[in-house]
Design a protein around this nucleic acid. Structure first.
Length: 324
DNA sequence: TCAGGCTGTTTCCGCCCGTC
DNA sequence: GACGGGCGGAAACAGCCTGA
């Protein structure tokens, strides 16, 4: 199968011989390796701080980094300096500089996403392991992509540690602002639903999962299960929304849960103060009911970025879970 | 005061295409 | 086929505005 998310064994070996592997080993608790279609993304704060490629001709690892992370300057998207080419040595040497520039970005959701994934993955007692972040379904070409009219990005993909492996597709929402359109709750329900309807899990995602795990093992990631066979995976994925940050700065303002209800339901529920025009219920029914055609679980936490201490991404210490 | 619409900015994804 | 340069599109934020 074409365009699967995996890298070659030779690439993985070269990676392990490079400074990037030392970097990863030394900072496992703050880095995530995303396996892509013949390349890797090294994430810090869910910012891609290196697109890692392997050049067969030269038997060499190349890196591309947005120059912002090195010099703190923002470049125009058309500026040829923006995507700076370098190698593992410079990424290793400049790591603290790169981190500092990532840290000052105001991307709370991404930082929370990173923290959640890393806290979960280092917790050996978690029931789940996150194998990918920022997942985009690949298509063969532009035509296939247009025809499918599907370009969702899933925040997190997690697998249960016990067989048969459950697959959790997770969307993280940080604060009320993240719930509204154009990429709010309704868009994501729609994406999830289409993903399910079109059979993309069966057709594609499960093959990606098998390949990603295989590549991660070759890269030296501590994956807490063996190689996965197709028959080891559950037939259907599960959908989750994690809602963080209970609008802590204001007492009077709606909580994310109240705001969310305005987007989900036709009538005011959950203490909702105001309804959105186009609700999820109008199109998809009550998605919090298990019997509904599309169904999702909502996990709420009052935690904010600074005090986030959830160490099991699905079964962890959330304040509320709907349905229970 | 607050929901939610609108716009600009930043970043990432991944294709296309010419060349070797 | 491998590779580099280029480019367009999408996500999702911040921040501002408006009207109930």
């Amino acid at each position: 199968m074409e365009n699967i998310r995996r890298i070659s064994t030779e690439f993985a070996e070269a990676f392990k011989q490079s400074e990037l592997y030392n970097l990863y080993k030394e900072h496992k608790h703050e880095l995530f390796i995303g396996v892509r279609n013949n390349y890797l993304n090294l994430y810090y704060n869910c910012d891609s701080i290196a697109r890692v490629e392997y050049k067969l001709r030269d038997k060499k690892i190349n890196c591309v980094i947005d120059k912002y992370y090195l010099d703190g300057k923002h470049y125009d998207s058309k500026d040829k300096n923006k995507r700076y080419k370098t190698g593992p040595k410079e990424i290793y040497a400049q790591y603290e500089v790169i981190k500092s520039h990532s840290n000052i970005r105001k991307t709370q959701e991404k930082k929370a996403q990173s923290k959640l994934v890393l806290l979960n993955n280092k917790n050996l007692d978690s029931n789940w392991f996150c194998i990918d972040i920022e997942y985009v379904k690949p298509f063969k070409n532009e035509a296939a992509k247009n025809e499918a009219n599907f370009n969702a990005r899933f925040d997190i993909i997690a697998l249960s540690k016990k067989k048969p492996y459950r697959v959790a597709l997770i969307e993280l929402k940080y604060g009320k602002g993240s719930l509204k359109e154009p990429s709010g709750i309704k868009k994501h329900v729609s994406d999830f639903s289409v993903f399910l309807e079109k059979g993309y899990f069966e057709e594609h995602l499960k093959h990606d999962i098998i390949a990603i795990v295989e590549s991660q093992k070759e890269l030296g990631v501590d994956v807490p299960f063996g190689l996965i066979k197709e028959s080891d995976l559950k037939k259907v994925p599960e959908f989750y929304f994690i809602i963080l940050d209970n609008n802590a700065e204001s007492v009077k303002a709606s909580t994310p849960k109240q705001t969310l209800a305005g987007y989900l339901f036709k009538e005011k529920r959950w203490g909702c103060k105001r309804l959105a025009k186009n609700t999820v219920e109008n199109e998809f029914g009550d998605i919090t009911k298990r019997g509904n055609k599309f169904f999702a679980t909502f996990l709420f936490s009052k935690a904010t970025l600074d005090n986030l201490e959830i160490t099991d991404i699905i079964d962890g210490a959330y304040d509320e879970r709907i349905p229970e």
